[in-house]
Simulated scan of single mutants.
Amino acid sequence: MIASLVLGSRLISFHELIDGLFHRDVDSYEANVVRKRISRTVFSLLGGAALGISGALMQSVTRNPIADPSILGVNTGASLFVVCGIAFLNISTANQYIWLALAGAAITAVFVFGIGSMGRGGATPIKLVLAGAATSAALSSLVTAIMIPRSYVMDQFRFWQVGSVGSATWSGIATFAPFLIVGIMIAVITAPALNALALGDEVATGQGVRTGMLRLVAALAGVLLCGATTALAGPIGFVGLLATHAIRLILGPDLRFVIPMSAMSGAIILTISDVCGRLIGSPGELEVGVVTAFIGAPILIILAMKSKVRSL
């Protein structure tokens, strides 16, 4: 958090940081920079936490060790609906973005799971990943097709498309917070039942778990967290994958610990990536979605090679 407040195209000294945080009467350029970075840092932490929890839930629901909102195409579905809203409905507020992003994320998640469930063996990890990759590619093409002939849409969201937390505002955070709270509550409540689900549907059913309803509710929470974050920051990929895998390596598979610690891990990953993007792109900045993709893509390849895409 301190690094996010002091590092960037303009380095902030300790004295300037204190002025910006605690002395509201100070109206220097440096103090104003600190105040602007506060909302950006808060959203990086909250958005990273949401993506971390979403990744943990999606991996558990699909029993797929490399499931992630970006890999399964959920981010791209949210992006498509938001871009359509801007191009055809003239939406411009965070509240409108969020509802459209949630609808797009939910429809895409259902579509990918439906495609991945076809054929022999049901929804296997490799089929889900392939269905998600194909769906994401198709939806990305639609997003591009909608934006290219509409320069005003492209100008307005060219940074949003690659994922950025630089435009975070307190009003946007206030709009995002209720979705984060509801998603976290659902994730925490369903964690014990998801532990039983990891043992197999038959074992979970024997323990009194309604597996169909559990998957629906947990997936809804994952889509809620991912869609709300995507609406405000754009499609930021690989955070859920990296956060959850790091915590599983340290703490094991118990979701009662994995879910809250994935939130912390996701917050750290997204905030550090944002700081790195500012430093690498100085005096401008490199959007955080580019940084997470640059880090996450090689790790995804390594995980797929080592696990051979086995089910959890």
Score class of each variant (00 low, 15 high):
Ile18His: 10
Asp25Phe: 14
Asn75Gly: 07
Val61Cys: 03
Ile18Lys: 15
Phe22Cys: 10
Ala31Cys: 09
Ala67Tyr: 08
Ser39Asn: 11
Glu30Gly: 03
Ile66Tyr: 02
Arg40Asn: 05
Arg63Asn: 11
Asn32Val: 13
Glu30Asn: 07
Arg10Asp: 14
Ile66Trp: 01
Ala67His: 06
Asn64Cys: 00
Asp68Glu: 13
Gly48Phe: 04
Arg35Asn: 09
Ser28Tyr: 08
Phe22Ser: 01
Asp19Phe: 08
Ala56Pro: 04
Gly73Lys: 03
Ser54Trp: 04
Ser28Leu: 07
Asp19Lys: 14
Asn64Thr: 08
Asp68Ile: 01
Val74Asp: 01
Ser44Thr: 06
Tyr29Val: 09
Ser60Thr: 03
Asp19Pro: 00
Val34Phe: 09
Gly77Glu: 04
Leu11Ala: 15
Pro69Gln: 11
Gly47Leu: 10
Val26Phe: 02
Ser13Tyr: 06
Leu11Tyr: 14
Tyr29Thr: 14
Ala49Gln: 06
Ile38Asp: 06
Ser54Gly: 11
Glu16Thr: 00
Ser39His: 00
Gly73Phe: 08
Ser28Pro: 01
Met58Gly: 07
Val42Phe: 15
Arg40Cys: 03
Leu21Cys: 01
Ser28Gln: 13
Ser70Val: 02
Glu30Leu: 12
Gly48Pro: 07
Phe43Ala: 07
Val42Gln: 06
Tyr29Asn: 08
Gly20Val: 03
Phe22Arg: 12
Arg63Ala: 11
Leu17Arg: 10
Ala50Gly: 04
Asn32Thr: 12
Leu45Trp: 04
Arg40Leu: 11
Pro65Met: 05
Val33Ser: 03
Gly47Arg: 08
Val26Thr: 12
Gln59Thr: 03
Ile12Met: 11
Ser54Met: 10
Glu30Thr: 13
Val74Cys: 04
Ile38Tyr: 11
Lys36Ala: 11
Ala31Ser: 15
Glu16Asn: 08
Ile18Arg: 15
Arg24Asn: 10
Met58Thr: 08
Pro65Arg: 06
Arg40His: 03
Ile18Thr: 14
Val42Ala: 15
His23Tyr: 13
Ser13His: 09
Ile66Cys: 09
His23Lys: 13
Val61Ile: 15
Val34Gln: 07
Ala50Asp: 02
Phe43Pro: 04
His23Leu: 15
Arg37Pro: 06
Gly77Cys: 07
Ile66Pro: 02
Val61Trp: 12
Val26Ala: 11
Val42Ser: 08
Leu72Arg: 04
Leu17Met: 14
Leu11Met: 15
Arg63Tyr: 05
Asn64Val: 02
Ala56Glu: 03
Thr76Cys: 02
Arg24Leu: 15
Val74Trp: 03
Asp25Ala: 13
Leu51Ser: 06
Leu17Thr: 11
Ser60Gly: 14
Ser13Ile: 02
Arg63Gln: 13
Leu21Thr: 14
Ile12Val: 12
Gly48Gln: 04
Thr62Tyr: 10
Thr41Trp: 12
Gly20Thr: 09
Arg37Asn: 10
Phe22Gly: 05
Leu72Ser: 04
Leu57His: 05
Ile12His: 05
